[in-house]
Design a binder for these strands. Structure first.
Lengths: 205, 205, 205, 205
DNA sequence: CTCTAATCGAGACGGTACGTCGCGTCTTACG
DNA sequence: CGTAAGACGCGACGTACCGTCTCGATTAGAG
């Protein structure tokens, strides 16, 4: 697509709102049946009862719509779990996370195992970095952005695995694993002094 | 593609070998400039100086060739690092891993940050599971396959991050991080008793 | 377009008149730069500073506006030249015709060489037939409608050719050619008896 | 269409020949039922049993195919009538012309009244000019190219009219009209000295 | 060393999906 | 409370790439 214009001066036009919502719903519904790559823009339009041309008036690509969906769903999730994480107890936040995902198991199965993982991860990372950026900015070891990436990626993998299970573990079990294998090591690494050999710059290149 | 015949009676025919190698090299070279999605089968053929038709005599899809490449490179890597991991000292194995990747920084940058990560991760997981399956198969906590997934995914993310850095950390630093934040928690989780509330089956569904 | 309402109760509303005139002018101006097929209704509206929706309140299609323009211009031309033709001297009428077109060379170049020839010819023929229908209606040989078509078409071709020339002939030369090669043969044919073999009906079909 | 390549090194490939012929036939057949503007490239492909994409491997536009058809049919016609016109007797050539058209009445009705007149006229003019260019090149009066245009246009109009009639005149009648009203005046004009006022260059512009 | 079978190159083709353009309708925000 | 901006549906267009297919030309490797 060339010169895509974000479109629509007024995002308040009822028709615009309706169309965008219809597209999001349609994509989500289709993702339940097959991966993104096997979904046609036309499929989405047909299901959403939106004209094919109109699709492009809102999104330049298929991925763009997926990002839209991802952003919306992640915003919901973050809105619920972040306050708890801020509060104090990471374990409580973990429980909240798994509880929320469990309550929308269908949706998140779709999002994390339906070929949309990439978009979800990127959106998660984007938001996580935004949040992390507001925190204290001292020198971390290991580097803060690395820790963010590892925590987020691992958490997504963990969720993904959970949702794939036929007989999934309980929320408490998951929160426990999450805490022990992901959160705890990450947090404590930050307090452990770097090995003696560190900060020596990379030799080659 | 229907009825794809993997390829050729004799895999030893000199022409066959030459063609396959040319395709692999061409793909790798192209991956240095742009992601897989932006590479055409025709691009590969042109660069490899292989007929378009011939491509399909070797690979049913673009992904198939990528898997081929991935498998080959991963086999190299595993061949080098696995023996060490078997031996005893995980830290030594880690150093070997990062040393190897560092020695082929170009190649692995391409493979892990050039839009081919998905294929690489899948191939890594496939091989890891094969290896894990040969080990003792008692009841692990957390589940062994989950641990495998988390370790492999995190390691790939870690490598990925390392390769993206303009001023990368030293091999020792990376091996240290890898050991502390990925390997150690995973191994020790296996020895920590599950929380008291566990094994209560998931309520819904 | 369904149920197109020609336009507006009052054709006298000042706004209506202004809009229609603006559209005509805009189309004429655009025709100077490119053929009709390459002109968009939106182009016309933008130039005329008329709302896109409004266009359709006046004209159902692009051609409709062109017909409007054509009819208006042809009416001017016919109003000037017809009286002379009625009078007696066809040569005088011819001079009048070429004089008029020469005086509006820009306009008629646009109309006859700008991809609008079809519409112009049709409108010309329509009017010519109306006029011819008021004349005596004896049996002509060759058939009167055929003569009308040939005279009108040839005249338009002649004008078209004239307007395309970089160094056009003089008005008198054109009138002379017109008279000799188009008007005179047509008129005199009407008085020449049909060949002996005529009126034998067509064999096949 | 951008950078359209005339395609196909070898115009001898059996498939190429078959496809091109199928397209021509399909267009002709469709033109019998509706004007060119109402025919879709897809319509043509469906009827010709040719892939939509393949169409564009042969023709950049719908008009291109029409030109192809026109050129072929006109070549047939010219091949038959030209020798006679060369010989001597223009009337004989006229009879040949009308005889040929009458023998392929369906086809020529389609070509001349099916919205394809423009293309036919252009192709006719192109060929006529080529032929005229081989003739003696003295100064004609009126200009030779003008005479060519008028003769060709009028002839096409005459044919067009003939083909539209429910009870068409006989071939001899048509040849007679053609001779008297088109050919004879054109030929004799060429021998008549220009009016005294001529050759005075156009005043304005 | 030859002959025979397999591989290769060229490229026409059908097909699916993509984006784009322009038309004509219809809703709705805004004055 | 009407009207003009503009969102929309639609049909067609032209493109890109895929995967299939035929047809020769070439080349390897087995006898």
């Amino acid at each position: 697509m060339k010169n895509f214009k974000p479109h629509y001066k007024t995002v308040k036009d009822a028709r615009t709102v309706r169309t965008r919502q219809a597209l999001r719903s349609a994509l989500l519904q289709l993702l339940e049946s097959r991966p993104l790559a096997d979904i046609t823009i036309l499929d989405i339009c047909d299901l959403a009862e939106v004209g094919y041309t109109t699709y492009f008036r809102h999104h330049p690509t298929k991925e763009s719509l997926l990002d839209d969906v991802a952003a919306e769903e992640i915003a919901h999730l973050v809105g619920l779990t972040l306050p708890l994480a801020e509060a104090a107890n990471t374990l409580t936040a973990g429980v909240a996370l798994f509880t929320y995902v469990d309550a929308h198991r269908e949706l998140w199965s779709t999002l994390l195992t339906g070929g949309a993982e990439g978009a979800m991860r990127n959106e998660f990372l984007r938001i996580s970095r935004e949040i992390a950026a507001t925190r204290g900015r001292e020198d971390h070891w290991p580097p803060a952005d690395l820790v963010t990436i590892l925590v987020v990626s691992s958490t997504i993998e963990l969720l993904s695995w959970w949702l794939r299970q036929k007989k999934p573990l309980s929320i408490e079990q998951m929160a426990d694993i999450h805490e022990r294998i992901i959160i705890h090591p990450a947090i404590h690494m930050e307090r452990i002094p770097a090995p003696r050999t560190v900060r020596r710059p990379q030799k080659k290149k």
